[in-house]
Every structure is written in C-alpha cells, then in structure tokens.
Design a protein around this nucleic acid. Structure first.
Length: 229
DNA sequence: GCGACAG
DNA sequence: ATCTTGTCGC
C-alpha cells in the first residue's frame, strides 16, 4: 500500500495538471454522479457511477464495483481510499458521461487536490467537486434563498477555492469546487441545476442509492445460498 | 500545544 | 461512512 508521505507527494505532483477553466462539451448531454458506500461490519466498500440525461435526469447507465478498502480514512487523502472502486465502476460503464460530479471536494483541499481533481486528472474528464461538509476554507454571509452563494476562502493565502452554495432555501449549503476542466462558476451553476428538489444534486443521491444496492447485493452473493433439496 | 478534519 | 423511524423543536 502507498505510504502517507508518498500519497502527499503524488498530490503535489499531480496538482499541476488540474485545469480550472471550462473545457467541457457544449451543449452538455449527459452527466454522471459518483458515491462510495461502506459496510459497517466489514472492510467492504462499493463504488457506483450513474449516468443521467442532463436535461431530463433519466438514468441512462449505472455501474458499480465492490472490493476491500485499501487505504485508511485520512482527511486530505480521501481519494486514495475512494478512487479504486470508483475507477473500476467507471470502466464498466457503457455510456461515457460528458462530465462528472464527485461526492467530495476538488480544489477546496489542503493541497488543492481533492478527490474531484484526482478523479478528473486520472480520467482526463471534466469533474466537479461537491461536498456535503467543509474540509478547509471559510465563508460568511450566505443568504437564505435557493441559489445563494458565498465564496470559500483558503485561510493560508485568502485564495478563492470554492463556493458554499444554498441549494434549498434555509437548508445547509453544499461546497462546490473545481475538479478538472470546469470553472467554479460553471460548476456552481450545474450543481444548483441538478439539486432540483433536495439539498444534494440528483447525481449524488442516485449514486448513493446504487452504491448501497451494490454493496447489499455483493454481500448476498458471498453467503452460501440456502440449502435446497 | 490545541483544534479542525471531504467519506 | 455506518443508522432508515418516529420524534422533537422552530
């Protein structure tokens, strides 16, 4: 297994490849969501990628992959834990999405290289980071209406590293940041568009659903089938 | 030294 | 992350 120091060094190297301007298809036709589910009573994890029609949100394709977790949870090294099952799942897709929304941060990361950046650079695909909670950076004065945004500012150098985005009125915001080949403004617009009815974008909600399903089905398959006679 | 810390 | 259901509070 890769050491913590080597993982940090790899992030420092790969971060130079991140593109923070829009290099995505126009119009956007398909969008994918990703999520990873953990089994509380084993070290199994399931990663899922779900591809939706960008305009209708119809599910066009889903792929999942179960495996044993191979890296501990360390804030800042999240991608080394979640990327393996997500990459396996992604390569099972029959339909390649125009862009992807990851469940986690992109640039809004200690070394500006969160999961969304790592996934985007690895696949050379447009990726948006959308986390449920903050990893680093601070924000203030976020208004209540849906669509309100507040810049997420890095404490070290006051750099703009993302946006706190209120996707539903009076509900806690999500944290949007560049992953790869999508600007912050475009990423924020897209996440708001995908969060039609709930706090989280539909991409993330569906990926969570399919990852949970995949883990249950995989565990079922491991158990010897009931004796039939 | 202490607190904070994506899932 | 894991927890899945009614309950409390604004």
């Amino acid at each position: 297994m890769i050491t913590e120091a080597a993982a940090i060094a790899l992030q420092e190297t790969l971060r130079a490849q991140v593109i923070t301007t829009d290099e995505l298809p126009s119009p956007i036709r398909t969008i994918a969501g990703t999520d990873v589910e953990y089994d509380k009573s084993s070290n199994l994890i399931a990663g899922s990628v779900v591809v939706l029609d960008y305009n209708t949100l119809e599910v066009l394709d889903v792929a999942s992959h179960c495996m044993e977790v191979s890296f501990p949870y360390i804030p800042g090294l999240f991608s080394f834990r979640e990327m393996p099952p997500l990459l396996e799942a992604y390569h099972k897709l029959k339909i390649q999405p125009d862009l992807i929304i990851c469940d986690g941060q992109g640039l809004a990361h200690q070394r500006r290289f969160g999961l969304a950046c790592h996934f985007g650079v690895t696949l050379d695909k447009p990726v948006i980071g959308c986390g449920k909670t903050r990893l680093c950076g601070h924000y203030e004065q976020l208004a209540e209406p849906r669509g309100s945004i507040a810049p997420l500012i890095a404490e070290e150098d006051q750099a703009l590293i993302g946006n706190a985005l209120r996707t539903q009125p009076g509900i806690n915001p999500v944290f949007v940041s560049c992953g790869h080949k999508v600007s912050l403004a475009t990423a924020t617009d897209i996440v708001l568009k995908m969060a039609t009815q709930y706090r989280l974008p539909e991409t993330t909600r569906l990926a969570d659903h399919y990852a949970r399903l995949a883990l249950l089905e995989y565990k079922d398959g491991l158990n010897p089938p009931p004796a039939s006679e």
